[in-house]
Simulated scan of single mutants.
Amino acid sequence: MKTQKLFLDEFILKILAFLTMTLSHIGFMLTTQGYYLDGSSGYNAGVILQYIGRLSFPLFAFMLAEGLHKTKNRENYLMRLAGMGLLILLAQSVLYAIDKGNAGTLEGNAFLDLTLDALFIYLIENSKKPLRILALFPFGYVILTYAMDVSEIFAYQNNAISAWSSFYPLFLRPSYSIFGFSLILLFYYARPCSLKMMRFLAQDEEVFQSIATEIKVQGFSNSMSAVFLVLVNLLFWTLAKCGL
């Protein structure tokens, strides 16, 4: 019997994530480094590449959620994420020390988002209660840096300068803040929610066991994740329109 396969497997998703991330960085360079004037064809190409690159973080977030479910050693998984995040942070710190005038171009570290969110999930699901309490720290850091971002937006709208801009540079903050945090949590819990919904719809344990194959569970979970992605984007688009 031929084994069913998903249309997009993990390898293809990783390639797409890295490709769209690369396009995003190219677009960022084209629109912020003075290579092209605003409105020129080169500048517009950069804008288009950045729009395409917006797909990268949801893909990385989805792969993180899947990785946390499937890894056999969450501690090692978390250490690898944190290690990559620290390497990027070190490089950004060197660039910041060399030229603070261009600090605005160091706009965050997506691996910081991934590490903080993975750490939160690891701690909140830990069997040891003291460790579960520690989950407040990564969550609190995301909230604190989000408050910094909001204060800077209000300062800019009122022709003022926020103290956070010089005191706490952007590269020390999660790139996707509460948006990324919410998205990763929803992607992660899409799988257990899918299992519960399938069990409820089956209304019989034997029927559930017969239909709950890995391919069907994954497909159900993927569909739920897609719905979550749309809802989160609509929510934060609305918040952005409200200046938040």
Rank of each mutant, 00 (worst) to 15 (best):
residue 192 P to K: 01
residue 32 T to V: 05
residue 52 I to Y: 13
residue 155 A to K: 03
residue 129 K to M: 14
residue 238 T to V: 02
residue 239 L to K: 06
residue 198 M to W: 01
residue 211 I to W: 01
residue 214 E to D: 11
residue 49 L to R: 06
residue 67 G to W: 11
residue 143 I to F: 04
residue 99 D to K: 13
residue 218 Q to F: 12
residue 114 L to Q: 10
residue 177 S to M: 12
residue 14 K to L: 02
residue 127 S to M: 04
residue 51 Y to E: 07
residue 15 I to S: 04
residue 58 P to A: 10
residue 154 F to K: 15
residue 212 A to S: 15
residue 146 Y to L: 06
residue 66 E to M: 09
residue 123 L to N: 01
residue 126 N to E: 09
residue 96 Y to P: 06
residue 191 R to N: 04
residue 63 M to H: 01
residue 189 Y to T: 00
residue 224 M to V: 09
residue 79 M to R: 14
residue 3 T to N: 11
residue 144 L to S: 03
residue 43 Y to P: 05
residue 124 I to P: 01
residue 119 L to R: 03
residue 75 E to P: 04
residue 217 V to D: 07
residue 220 F to A: 05
residue 85 G to K: 08
residue 175 S to K: 09
residue 43 Y to M: 00
residue 39 G to T: 08
residue 64 L to G: 07
residue 235 L to S: 11
residue 154 F to P: 02
residue 42 G to T: 02
residue 91 A to W: 04
residue 116 L to C: 05
residue 198 M to Y: 00
residue 162 S to E: 05
residue 194 S to I: 00
residue 75 E to M: 15
residue 175 S to T: 07
residue 9 D to L: 07
residue 75 E to V: 15
residue 230 V to N: 08
residue 162 S to F: 09
residue 33 Q to A: 03
residue 7 F to S: 08
residue 178 I to S: 11
residue 46 G to L: 02
residue 242 C to P: 01
residue 150 V to C: 02
residue 142 V to N: 10
residue 58 P to Q: 12
residue 103 A to V: 13
residue 37 L to V: 14
residue 82 A to G: 00
residue 34 G to S: 05
residue 5 K to N: 12
residue 75 E to G: 10
residue 206 E to H: 15
residue 84 M to S: 12
residue 13 L to T: 02
residue 172 L to A: 05
residue 40 S to Y: 03
residue 74 R to Y: 00
residue 80 R to F: 14
residue 215 I to R: 11
residue 118 A to V: 11
residue 239 L to G: 10
residue 81 L to N: 10
residue 25 H to R: 14
residue 142 V to A: 14
residue 139 F to N: 02
residue 224 M to F: 11
residue 50 Q to P: 01
residue 38 D to A: 13
residue 151 S to H: 09
residue 153 I to W: 09
residue 16 L to W: 11
residue 23 L to R: 06
residue 178 I to N: 00
residue 3 T to G: 08
residue 155 A to F: 00
residue 75 E to S: 12
